[in-house]
Every structure is written in structure tokens, then in C-alpha cells.
Measured scan of single mutants.
Amino acid sequence: GIPATNLSRVAGLEKQLAIELKVKQGAENMIQTYSNGSTKDRKLLLTAQQMLQDSKTKIDIIRMQLRRALQ
């Protein structure tokens, strides 16, 4: 079985993952909103794209940590 310490770690990672998935969803929504907007929305679009990139990276890292914890 999986050690108890790993189980609480997994629960924490799953919570983090859920949050990051919401951030990713929000960033994707912002990108959709701003991509057909005016030029003043360009900065917001770039910010949203950066957020999305960061979020995807975090999600990958969390998933990797989850896999390790579940081994």
C-alpha cells in the first residue's frame, strides 16, 4: 500500500491541482475575451497568455509529484 504520509501529500497535491486547473480555465477564458478586443486589450491578452503558460507548467509539475507520491 501507500504510506499515510504520502496519502496526505496526495490530498494536498490534488487540492493544488484543482486550483491550478481553475486558474488555467480562467486564463483561457481571458484569452478568448481579449483576443478579439482592441489594442488596449493587448497587454491583458499577453498577461493572460503568460498566466496560462505558468499554469500549464505548474499542472505538469503537480502531476509529476502526484505520480511519484503514488508509486
Rank of each mutant, 00 (worst) to 15 (best):
L70C: 10
N29L: 13
M64E: 14
E20R: 02
K40L: 10
D41A: 03
A18F: 06
Q49L: 12
L46A: 11
Q32G: 04
E28R: 07
G1K: 12
Q65C: 12
A27D: 00
Q49S: 03
L52K: 02
L45T: 01
Q49K: 06
Y34W: 06
K22L: 09
K22S: 06
M30Y: 03
V23C: 09
A11L: 09
S55P: 00
Q65E: 14
L70W: 07
S35E: 08
T47R: 11
Q49G: 02
Q50N: 07
L52E: 01
M30S: 03
I61D: 06
D60S: 14
Q50F: 04
K22P: 00
A48P: 00
A11D: 11
L7V: 13
I61E: 10
N36C: 14
L45V: 04
D60K: 15
A11T: 05
R63H: 06
L52C: 03
P3C: 15
E20M: 13
K15H: 06
R67K: 12
Q49C: 14
T47Y: 09
I62T: 01
I19L: 12
K40E: 11
S8I: 11
K24N: 02
V10R: 06
L46E: 14
Q16V: 03
D60Y: 11
Q71K: 07
K56E: 12
I61N: 10
E28D: 03
Q49N: 05
R68P: 01
S8A: 15
Q53P: 00
Q16F: 04
G26R: 12
A11I: 12
T57A: 10
N29Q: 12
K40W: 09
Q32M: 11
N6L: 13
Y34N: 02
V23I: 12
L45K: 02
A11E: 15
L13Y: 03
P3I: 06
Q65K: 09
A11G: 03
Q50Y: 04
M64K: 11
K56R: 06
A11C: 15
E14L: 15
K43S: 09
I31V: 08
L66Y: 02
G12H: 15
D54N: 08
K56V: 11
Q53M: 09
Q16S: 07
R9P: 06
Y34P: 01
D60A: 15
E20V: 05
L13V: 00
Q49R: 09
R9L: 15
T39L: 08
L52Y: 05
K43H: 12
N29F: 09
L70F: 04
Q49W: 13
N36Q: 09
E28C: 09
I62A: 01
A4C: 15
G12D: 14
T39N: 05
I62S: 00
S38I: 12
L52D: 01
Q49V: 12
L70N: 03
M64T: 13
T57G: 05
S38M: 08
V23Y: 06
A48D: 00
K58W: 02
R68T: 13
L45W: 05
L13M: 03
D41Y: 04
K15C: 14
I61P: 00
A11R: 11
L66D: 00
K43N: 14
G1A: 10
N6H: 14
K58F: 02
Q71W: 04
T47N: 14
I59G: 00
I19N: 09
A18I: 07
Y34T: 02
L7F: 03
N6V: 12
P3D: 10
R63P: 00
Y34H: 04
R9T: 15
T33Q: 13
L46M: 11
Q53E: 11
E28I: 12
G12I: 15
D60W: 12
L70I: 09
I61Q: 10
E28S: 03
L46P: 02
I31T: 01
A69W: 04
S55D: 00
L44S: 04
D41M: 03
K24A: 08
A48E: 01
L21N: 04
T39A: 11
E28K: 04
A4S: 11
I61A: 09
R63M: 14
R9K: 13
I19E: 15
I2W: 13
V23H: 08
D41V: 03
G26F: 10
N6S: 11
I62D: 00
L13D: 00
E14A: 14
I31D: 00
I2T: 07
L66H: 01
R68Q: 14
G1T: 11
M30Q: 04
